[in-house]
Design a protein around this nucleic acid. Structure first.
Lengths: 243, 243
DNA sequence: TCGTTGGGAGAGCAGTGCTCTCGTTTGAAG
DNA sequence: CTTCAAACGAGAGCACTGCTCTCCCAACGA
């Protein structure tokens, strides 16, 4: 009966370590919510969890590593919010509604978590390169958007060919600018290059609009940010080819 | 003959003060070029100009005030670059060429001065509100863009009405989202609201594209950033109505 | 039971923004 | 020309930061 029995999973020490790691991350997340990424102090979060600063270094090799953990968490949170918004209206079968709901959810998340948004999409800390492990959660949100467009084409909600006066560029011209490997991998083979470009541009515009709003570059020019954002995503939908 | 004589302008002390102020700003600018705004250390720039840190406080009340000075300088630099690019092709009378040259110059400036760009358009420092004196140099670049569009309408290079399938939205809908006072003030009365929105969106997309490129969010998706940027501004021109 | 390992605590280093005091220099008014 | 206040540079000091190193104890495996 001395079977070690895997069920207890990892050893007690390991479990304690995981729990304390989670505590530190949670405390850091709290601090990040009311300060900026640059102001996040490892010593302060150490105090919050009742440890001395040097003890935290048993769990995170540096402040940047702690920031990376928060980065992944934030990407996942945003990706989850986008996916949830998409899923909530998917049943209605209205692809345009999915487009609007998802983009609105992204903006809502950004407004609700400005520090996290700045961490993800603001100026990067010089000398800090996000490790490979962050790119997978990072692409979740754009994948949601690409999937909606792909679905739109599939069910005929998007007319890729005649989206207005914008003649579809020849594949060769686009191939010169877009990295097909990655794009295909994310978007799937059934999305024409033309639509990949349009979606990428639309996502860029959405990001720019949210950033301008959050970083205060629209004050004075835009009186009603909600209405303006709706106006923007409506136009983006038309430019992509939503009918 | 004891006329104080204004020509010597300010007193010697004042002139020395101005010169030292300029020295400090120049040193800070140098440091900012190879570090980020968050890393800019007032003590370090004090050492660079051969002063002790407390002496710098005679010239700038805080580190943020020094950053504000750099902010204004950077805005002016960018605005000047945009105006110069516009002026360099204005003689040709080709409004579309002015559009492309100006936006390309903006991107070139951003790539050449990434830290300045991050200072202007990256995540703002929490708790730091840019004072009123910064908004005037800040609008220079968008004014250049708006002026090109206005010119385009005037000479008939832009067809505002039928810019593709995008039916011009009713003024009322746009008026709900855009702050007309400021927009009119910047754009002039002769630019229809529809075009103001399109230009604002285009500028947002340009900003988003440059930010994505500079902040590393396009790696993997875009293989040739130069070609991609050209592709983007070409499409934006068409969406605005350039023929 | 013994020896290894993990992890907490503390001191310490080098750096930061910012304040205060203390002389000295400067410039203008009497 | 003298006087006196304002301007200014230097230094010490405070509270804070990220990070390292050492010490020491508790938990764990053999």
């Amino acid at each position: 009966m001395s079977h070690p029995e895997v069920p207890a999973a990892r050893t007690a020490r390991q479990r304690a370590r995981d729990q304390i790691t989670a505590e530190i991350v949670a405390a850091a997340r709290l601090r990040l919510a009311e300060q900026g990424p640059a102001e996040l102090s490892l010593r302060a979060v150490a105090r919050d969890v009742g440890m001395v600063s040097s003890a935290v270094y048993r769990y995170f090799a540096s402040r940047d590593e702690l920031l990376t953990a928060l980065l992944v968490l934030a990407y996942d949170d945003l990706g989850g919010a986008a996916e949830a918004a998409d899923a909530s209206v998917r049943a209605r079968g209205d692809v345009a509604a999915r487009w609007k709901a998802t983009l609105r959810a992204i903006r809502r998340w950004a407004i609700a978590h400005p520090s996290d948004y700045a961490l993800l999409y603001g100026s990067p800390v010089p000398g800090y390169a996000a490790p490979q492990t962050t790119i997978e959660p990072a692409v979740r949100v754009i994948v949601v958007i690409l999937r909606i467009v792909t679905e739109g084409v599939r069910v005929g909600a998007i007319e890729p060919g005649d989206a207005g006066h914008l003649a579809a560029a020849p594949e060769s011209a686009i191939a010169g600018a877009i990295g097909f490997v990655r794009s295909r991998e994310l978007a799937g083979d059934d999305l024409p290059a033309e639509l990949i470009v349009r979606t990428l541009m639309a996502w860029t515009t959405v990001f720019g609009t949210i950033s301008f709003e959050l970083f205060g570059h629209l004050v004075g020019s835009v009186s009603d940010p909600d209405a303006y954002f709706d106006l923007v995503i409506e136009r983006l939908a038309r430019e992509i080819g939503f009918r």
